[in-house]
Write a protein that binds this DNA or RNA. Sequence first.
DNA 1: AGGTACATGTAACATGTTACATGATTCC
DNA 2: GGAATCATGTAACATGTTACATGTACCT
Lengths: 186, 186
Amino acid sequence: MSLPHAILTALLEKPSSGLELTRRFDKSIGFFWSATHQQIYRELGRLETTGLIRALPQAGPVRGQKKEYEVLPAGRAELARWTAAAEEPRPIRDPLLLRLRAAAVVGTAGLDAELRRHLALHRAQLAHYEAIERRDFPPGEEAGAEPLQHAVLRAGIGLESFWVRWLAETVDTLPPAPAEEPADPS
Amino acid sequence: MSLPHAILTALLEKPSSGLELTRRFDKSIGFFWSATHQQIYRELGRLETTGLIRALPQAGPVRGQKKEYEVLPAGRAELARWTAAAEEPRPIRDPLLLRLRAAAVVGTAGLDAELRRHLALHRAQLAHYEAIERRDFPPGEEAGAEPLQHAVLRAGIGLESFWVRWLAETVDTLPPAPAEEPADPS
DNA sequence: AGGTACATGTAACATGTTACATGATTCC
DNA sequence: GGAATCATGTAACATGTTACATGTACCT
């Protein structure tokens, strides 16, 4: 149950329409909780039905017209409850690690290129986060503005740094031209 | 589409019944791709229907009896295809980071305890992985057995280390007795 | 005969993904 | 008036979660 809370947070930061939310989920918030516009519209409908948000009144036609939402007191209370609630950490869930394990059984053909591709992508994402940090949290004026936002950004930087380090290491470790297929039917 | 491939990998490592797979998904494989027994039985049915695995023949009653599966050549081929295929890295998706961001808006009450709780859990998981590493990959006899399995384990260790580091740092950074509620209705 | 562990499954629902449909506004 | 963009939405499906149902084997 994280999407509704992600939307509540975004709407508290700034009342928005569905499409505006979608755009914001393509950056900042979306860096650690992505969502498509269909998910967002569906969830906005639910949040409105349950009385956590409301659509700002608008004149004229509805279909095809921008519809802005704002958070109601009940929505803010629910978000505060969820923020403090106990919730288990997400276990790791990564297809790439699964594929490494599969490669140990069916052979590593093609794996090398894929690891290098991921390495490049993570390097780019890391550079992106570091640019944001330089822009929004320049060194020197610490302890100031937004320690929580900075902590979140540092998490992104730390995670991408980990992947870059691990992928570089693993690419090196990988047997260079390995057994094509340990299978031998018949 | 990772669960079927996780199951194919597990079955190639060792033909198993649904319940045995469920147990294995509670450790090793489950460390980076968890699944409940319902998911596993449903997926085993699909994999059998599509001809990627088959149930080993058994005499007598079926309901309530163990049913072992093995991977067919088509299943092995599909797994090899998937291992080498291009697939985008999963974006980060973490409710805890979301909650930090929410706390920036509705206040940090209760957050401190939750961060400390997560820190303890990640420390325990890290210790667990390190114990496995000491047992299965003792230093000295490197370059040997299973470089891919070791790489996967190192990923687990690296990720847990990151969380431990980040959580410890963030707990320290957190404003000690912060603004309870930045809200003020009416 | 009753309880427990083993073993497979069904049903209902929540969440996430993909493809498509429809109307409004703006610019040429 | 046609194309592009903004904006909201439906439908169908895939995946993941939760609760429950049913039968077997073994131990006491």
